[in-house]
Amino acid sequence: MLEFENVSYTYHTKSGETSAVKELSFSVEKGQFVSVIGPSGCGKSTILSLAAGLLFPSSGKISRGGGEFGYMLQRDALFEWRTVEQNIFLPLEVKKRNTAQMRAKAVALAEKYGLKDFLKKSPSQLSGGMRQRVALIRTLAAEPEILLLDEPFSALDYQTRLEVCDDVQAIIKSEKKTALLVTHDISEAIALSDKVVVLSARPAHVVAEHPIDFADTPKARRNDVHFAGTFEILRKELGI
């Protein structure tokens, strides 16, 4: 579905060049939820930008198995001058697929995931967790094949974060979407993913890959006996 093969990327600024990603290889299978974790500032967001085609690799190859991308960012970036519903329609308008049918689908999706009463409201009337849920539905509205999640929970307070994170995982799973999440939060990665890819400090390359196969829901995982052990392994690999 999405494959990085020996991908390198170098940033150029006036003061010099920085190798952000070096010979990075990993893949995301269809329907899989893959998390990429790494130390802060290791170039995780760069990986998503590369995956989305916003940046082009300096060398190496990225293959995408067709289909659209949906990008979810650290902050919800909802447009305050639009209602929740209009925010959800934004990708349809941008991608010129703003048909009555697509809009109805998007609304149905929003209603299915508890936004029915909020559709006509302004984003400023919503809580942080609710806003991030709107952002997810907005991402899903254009029916992307693969979701790229750039630490979408990091701006939320701890309690909301757990809630929204479980929420988002459930929605993504039930919509049978493929997802690539970057985060620096080890427990989040373990709780959500089918596979965790551990990156080194900059320039980022893959240190290890771990399939996670115990328990099914994030909540059950956090309470599972294997959780602590997996956490320890990942923590050591990250060198913290």
Binding site: L54, Y71, L73, R75, A77, V94
Partner: peptide, 9 residues
């Protein structure tokens, strides 16, 4: 962030 969002779309 909003500009990035638009670009990503």
């Amino acid at each position: 962030t909003k500009l990035t969002l638009m670009k990503a779309m």
